[in-house]
C-alpha cells in the first residue's frame, strides 16, 4: 500500500544572525546551513495497518508525512502510495487520503461545522447518497449532532478535533495521516479520539499512519512503530519489544522513551 525507499531530503536553512552587525552582514551574504531532514528513510506499510511514527522533535516525522501527502518533493528516493507517486499525481493521490494536522484546523472558522462538511463534499465531489451515509455514520460514531450547527471557533479543542476527524474521513479515504491528533486534548477527548481511530481502522479498513508524542496513544492503538531520529529509521517493529527493557526497570513510559532517545543519541 505504502512503499518508501531511501528517501532523502536536505533543506537549506538561513542561519539566524545573533547581533545587528551579523544581521546586516547576512543581508549581503546570507550564510546558509544544510539540514539533512531525511537521510535514508525506507519502510513499507500494508493495507489495514495502524502504524505509529515516533521520534523526538525535529527527527523528520513531519517531513516524511509531507512527502507522503504530496506536499513536499524529496531530493531522491522512492515513495509509492497505491502505485502512485504523490507529488507527480497530486490530485489523484490526495483524493484517496485523509489528513489531520493536530495543530491546524481544516474547518472554516466562522461558519457552522456542517457548512465546512458540505464544502468538503463539493471539494472531493462525493456523490449525494455516499455523503449522507458517510456523514450519518461519522456523526453517530463521534457524537457530533450537537456540534454541527456551531461555528468551529466556538468549539472546545476536543470537540473540534472530533469534527476534524470526521472532516478528514467524509470522502472515505483508505489512508489516514494523523499528525499529533491528540495534542492538547483532555483525557475524555483523547479516549474518544483513540476509540474512533481504532473503530475507523476496524470498520472501514482505513490504513492509519499516526505521529504522536503521547506514548499512551501508541500503547492503546498501535502494534507496530517506526522510530525516526535525525533523519534515519532507527527501529521498525513491535512497540512492546522496543520498550520491554525500559519497562523492566519499573519506570513510567515517558521516562522509558526519554532514556531510549538518550541511548540512541537522538534526544
Amino acid at each position: 500500500m505504502i512503499q518508501v525507499e531511501s528517501l532523502r531530503k536536505t533543506y537549506l536553512s538561513r542561519r539566524r544572525a545573533s547581533g545587528v552587525g551579523q544581521a546586516l552582514l547576512s543581508l549581503v551574504k546570507p550564510s546558509r546551513e544544510r539540514i539533512e531532514a531525511l537521510k535514508d528513510v525506507s519502510f513499507s506499510i500494508e493495507r489495514g495497518e495502524i502504524v505509529g511514527y515516533i521520534g523526538p522533535n525535529g527527527a523528520g516525522k513531519s517531513t516524511t508525512i509531507k512527502v507522503m501527502c504530496g506536499i513536499l518533493v524529496p531530493d531522491s528516493g522512492v515513495c509509492l502510495i497505491k502505485g502512485r507517486v504523490p507529488w507527480k499525481e497530486r490530485a489523484a493521490h490526495v483524493a484517496g487520503i485523509g489528513v489531520v494536522f493536530g495543530q491546524r484546523s481544516q474547518l472554516w472558522w466562522d461558519v457552522p461545522v456542517i457548512d465546512s462538511f458540505e464544502l468538503l463534499r463539493d471539494v472531493y465531489r462525493v456523490p449525494g447518497r455516499e455523503y449522507s451515509a458517510s456523514l450519518e455514520e461519522l456523526v453517530s460514531a463521534l457524537d457530533l449532532s450537537p456540534l454541527l450547527g456551531q461555528p468551529a471557533r466556538s468549539l472546545s479543542l476536543g470537540q473540534r478535533m472530533r469534527c476534524e476527524m470526521a472532516a478528514s474521513l467524509l470522502h472515505s479515504p483508505d489512508i489516514l495521516f494523523l499528525d499529533e491528533p491528540t495534542i492538547g486534548l483532555d483525557a475524555v477527548s483523547k479516549l474518544a479520539v483513540r476509540a474512533f481511530i481504532e473503530r475507523a481502522n476496524r470498520e472501514r479498513g482505513v490504513t492509519v499512519i499516526l505521529t504522536t508524542h503521547d506514548m499512551h496513544d501508541i500503547e492503546a492503538l498501535v502494534s507496530r512503530v517506526i522510530l525516526i531520529g535525525k533523519g534515519e529509521i532507527l527501529y521498525d517493529g513491535g512497540f512492546e519489544a522496543l520498550v520491554a527493557g525500559g519497562r523492566a526497570t519499573g519506570a513510567g513510559i515517558e521516562a522509558v522513551m526519554a532514556a531510549l532517545y538518550g541511548e540512541m543519541g537522538i534526544a
Binding site: K66, I71, A91, A92, V94, F101, Q106, V123, Y124
Partner: peptide
C-alpha cells in the same frame, strides 16, 4: 499553513 492544506485537496 493553509497552503499545505490546499495541497492535500484534490
Amino acid at each position: 499553513g493553509e497552503f499545505d492544506r490546499i495541497l492535500v485537496r484534490p
